[in-house]
Structure formats: C-alpha cells, structure tokens
Design a protein around this nucleic acid. Structure first.
Lengths: 120, 120
DNA sequence: AATTTCCATAACCAATAAGTTATGTAACGA
DNA sequence: TCGTTACATAACTTATTGGTTATGGAAATT
C-alpha cells in the first residue's frame, strides 16, 4: 500500500547478505554476534545491515543482557508479497493474451499489421 | 535460485518509478514515450529505468519503426515471489511458535528464568 | 572497581544510483 | 535528401550504499 514502505522493503531484500540474515532469522532469534559469525565481514557491517532491515520493519530487536536478539517481522513481507502477487497475476494473463495474439498473427501471416498497443 | 538475479530483481522493484512503469506495462505494451509521459522526469531518466528493468530481466524490448515497445517478463517475478513466499511461510510459522512460547512463559510465570534481577 | 563481552556509532572511502543537459543515431515522412 | 520523430548514449553532479577501522558505552563477571 505505502510506496515508501515498499521501497524500503524491496531495497532491503536486494542485498544477499541481508537475505541470508533473514533466512537465518527464519530459524529463530539470534544475537548480532551469532548473525555476524557466518559472514566474512566485520561486525559493524552486519550492524549496518541490521539497521537497514530494522528501518524497513523487517526485523525488530529486544534486550537480553548485553545481547540484542533480532527477530523477524512478517508484516512488510506480506505487503511485498501482495504487491508481487497482484502484478504477477496480471503479467501472466497478459502473457497468455500475448501468446494468443502471436498465434493469431502467425496464422494470418500474409498481412503485417501496424497497430498501437490496444489488444482486446 | 540465483542470488545475483534476485539482487537485480529486488533492486529494480525498490524504485517507485520502476514499479509504476511495471504497473503500466501490466496493462499492455508501451513505447518509451508513452512511459515517459505520466512522469515529471526527463526521457533519458526513464530510459535509464528501463535499462535497469531490462537488465533485471523484468522487461524486454522490441522494434516497431522508431519505437521500442516494452513488454513485461514474468519469470524473474516468479522467482522473487517464490523467495518471498517461502520465507513468509517460515516466518509466519515462526511467529506462531513464538506466540505459543510466550503463552507458555506467561503460564509458567512463577519461575523466573533470567538471572537478571534478584527476586524480591 | 576493573575487566570483559556485546554491540553501536563515528569517520572515512570507493562504488553505484538517480537525476540532469547535451548530443548522437536509426528509421520514417515529405 | 532533409527534417522529424523516437530513443539511446555521454558527461556530469549529488546522494546513497556497503564496506572498513577506531572508538564508545552498557551490562555482566570477577
């Protein structure tokens, strides 16, 4: 629904490290240290990624002594999913239409048609 | 499946102008000029966005005299959708588990597990 | 009180992104 | 052939991104 929100969500998902972090968090909460370990990257770099994910609303953080356990938030994903799903359906039907059109043109091959895009 | 492909797809979707372009193309093919018109932006700017979409595989372009009609490509979207859907499901079950856990903790409240604060 | 652990923040750097204006170019129409 | 249309490309600017090292700060341990 909200465009800026979708911006942030998709931008956050555009980085493989952040997707890996989300994949890890899908298995359960994890501290920053635990999230840093599997990557060949400094801890501040991971902290930055976590901030991006947090600003996008994809994760939230708690407190457990010195640890800041991260957990996933499903809502923004649902929005992104809804957006994708909506257009994916449109595009697929669109493709179906296009295929039909191509078949039609193939059949009537003798006459090349110049037309602006307005298929029915 | 392919990480770089997902990178490009999500990055392409992270821009509202590009999402609007895709939404427009979902209604049918359009030329660059037609795509430029609704935006308060120069034609080269739109051409750049189109290149991003094309490199991500989200659109392809044909030839119709001087026009370069753009049409949508559904495949990368399906991949992005699949990724999202997979993790969305994981996350939702994860949340269900968390909720259950919280209920459990709430019920067994008498037993403080954390040695954070001394009992009074 | 001092130290250690866990994490955030600051300051910096190189690369990329998103826009601009100006210019080049392919195809059509007169 | 000449001009026009439709688009791409180049060159440039500014802002953002993704990484680094160095430092700071809160909470637990000793």
């Amino acid at each position: 629904m909200n465009s800026a929100r979708l911006d942030a969500t998709f931008a956050a998902l555009a980085d493989p490290t952040r997707r890996a972090i989300l994949a890890r968090l899908a298995l359960g909460e994890a501290s920053v240290g635990e999230l840093t370990e599997p990557f060949a990257m400094s801890q501040p770099a991971i902290s930055k990624h976590l901030k991006v994910l947090e600003l996008a609303g994809l994760i939230s953080r708690g407190r457990d002594a010195q640890r800041r356990p991260c957990r996933i938030e499903a809502a923004p994903l649902a929005d992104a999913n809804a957006w994708l799903e909506e257009y994916r359906q449109l595009w697929e039907t669109r493709f179906a239409n296009l295929d039909a059109l191509l078949e039609e043109l193939k059949a009537a091959e003798k006459k090349p048609v110049r037309r602006k895009s307005r298929p029915s």
